[in-house]
Design a protein around this nucleic acid. Structure first.
Lengths: 341, 341
DNA sequence: ATGAAAGCGCTAACAT
DNA sequence: ATGTTAGCGCTTTCAT
């Protein structure tokens, strides 16, 4: 059996309340007694039992983290940031993999609530109203990271302005002379018009007096496989083959690049490709991928810090934190010559 | 306040022990009472408080998972497997990122012990004796995943036979006619002779009557950056440039490939490259990377399953589980012509 | 400033 | 078969 507060009390010749007081600095304790207790703690290596603590305090130093896919590179980078600041503030992480499924998300929120977590970081490909409501009702301080956080009111969220990010990239492509820009969607919406990223893509077109053709807007998921197959479809178009592909995930963009190379196309000579998020693979593949840099690690870190501030300050002002993104032009995009436009 | 066992007992008109019994099926309860209690539970949506449970049982349904780097692709795949079977058996994951540092690893083991986790999955780039000893002493059921598990006795481990995997790949390369095979090491050992993977590389040479040149054995880490710079060194060699590079991580191999492409070399025409682990990037990059397939997801899943079996069976027979690996020949390697040998 | 005692929500030994 | 009770290890009134 591990040593308990009782043992420490006995050894120091004081009551357990006193030990608790020196442990938590909750009430004044005379100097000599404090020293005696601390001495015993050091000697015995006593560590308070966090389980007992949580029970009585109805609160733990555990942050529940719900993610849609642990093995995804982007999630990994968020997680690094989350973990880092969690550790800094002595919070522990309780990991839940929702597979992006609403049912799982709901289940995990309930689970975390029963675990008495101090707070939650909720990452999702696409936020659903039902979970948001459940979380609000649970009163557990939560920060959200998702592409569609702006659809909800009164929630804490950290991220990038996805609408403008997509807008800027599309605009950039148009500025390069591209008019036939395909868009690879990576999340399933009931209605495409709901997609924040798509809205940015569409707005950039209309602002430039360009129509978008739904033949160029393909639906898949964020995987490289999906990008590969979608791009293949695009490349095989008899006429009107797009001159650029904008994928809303780096993986899908990498897949598209693979498809281009496999079908003998040169990138960016024959087709331009742009990704989304600036994950590690973008600078690893050749040609290196043009993408939108998003400070994933920072988003993770900031969301965690903001969450902890919220927990400890017991404040509850919904905050929307937007971090800067930037277009990173690498080697998969180029300007069209006049005759190509 | 959430509803407790007391409330349920009162509402069902029974004692809390009875409720506890139907909850845990620990003792016979008459059919009608059981039904009444279950009815109340359903109506109220009561969920037992796992914290209180852990306190009295001195055990939780939490598995601590210590990993060296969450954002690493390989770790992500292990984690998926771990998470999946954990979920299947209703165990929750407590995540710790050690950054591969012994100090952190030790700290986390202590932390997890105080959290009364039911068991641990310990992933490490390189297992150190100190932490193994600490874990053994803690008596917490633990399964290890690391390249050097065979250096330790009486530990549970799941993985691949890294010695033979490296041996086979080197042998394969030699069979292709390569005699000048560079080796990119990815983990820092005090003594290179300690490295299991290096041993495989060396043995394949000696078995084929080949000497290894330490000029070809470069030391870096598992990152693509490291692979990039190391490969660049190799490529710039005035004479005796290696005809093949065997990197002990896919990322490093991908970096090496980038270096080759950037310096105008054709792969595999001018140089062959092989990686290690068959992570997602290997089939994403072009040319697709020859590597050693390791069932990462399965290793995660099997280690978790084996751990749970251990926890629940209360057995403690150290087991060494070796899963099959295989050489995956893709497009970064080729056979040398007679005149090139 | 210190100690005694209640109680957090639950399980399990003991009693009936 | 069911209820009573004693903790699990800790924090926090409430006395002193």
């Amino acid at each position: 059996m591990a040593i308990t507060i009782k043992d420490v009390a006995k050894m120091a010749g004081v009551s357990i309340s006193t030990v608790s007081r020196v442990l938590n600095n909750s009430k004044p304790v005379s100097e000599d007694i404090r020293e005696r207790v601390e001495q015993v703690i050091k000697e015995t290596g006593y560590v308070p039992n966090p389980v007992a603590r949580s029970l009585v305090m109805r609160k733990s130093r555990i942050i529940g983290v719900i993610v849609p896919n642990i093995s995804n590179g982007r999630i990994g980078e968020y997680l690094s940031g989350i973990e880092e600041v969690g550790r800094m503030y002595q919070y522990d992480l309780f990991l839940c993999n929702s597979y992006g499924e609403l049912k799982e998300e709901m289940k995990y929120v309930e689970l975390l609530r029963s675990k008495q977590v101090a707070g939650m970081v909720f990452l999702s490909w696409k936020l659903q109203e039902k979970v948001v409501d459940l979380i609000k009702e649970s009163k557990i301080p939560t920060v959200f990271v998702s592409k569609n956080t702006e659809e909800f009111e009164d929630i804490h969220s950290v991220g990038v302005d996805h609408f403008h990010a997509a807008y800027d990239m599309t605009n950039h492509l148009i500025g390069l002379g591209h008019k036939k820009i395909a868009f690879l969607r990576t999340s399933i919406e009931d209605d495409i018009q709901d997609s924040t990223v798509f809205k940015g893509y569409a707005k950039a077109h209309s602002d430039n007096g360009l129509d978008i053709s739904m033949n160029y807007v393909l639906q898949g998921d964020a995987s490289s496989d999906s990008g590969y197959h979608l791009a293949k479809q695009l490349i095989e178009m008899r006429e009107g083959r797009p001159t650029a592909i904008f994928a809303s995930s780096d993986e899908a963009a990498a897949g598209a690049l693979g498809a281009a190379i496999d079908t003998g196309l040169k990138v960016p000579d024959d087709i331009s490709i742009a990704g989304y998020a600036n994950t590690a693979i973008t600078s690893l593949i050749r040609p290196a991928l043009t993408t939108i840099h998003q400070p994933l690690y920072d988003i993770g870190a900031v969301s965690m810090r903001s969450l902890i501030k919220n927990i400890e300050g017991a404040q509850d002002v919904p905050e929307t934190i937007r971090l800067a993104y930037s277009i990173v032009e690498r080697s998969t995009t180029r300007a069209l010559r006049e005759d190509e436009k």
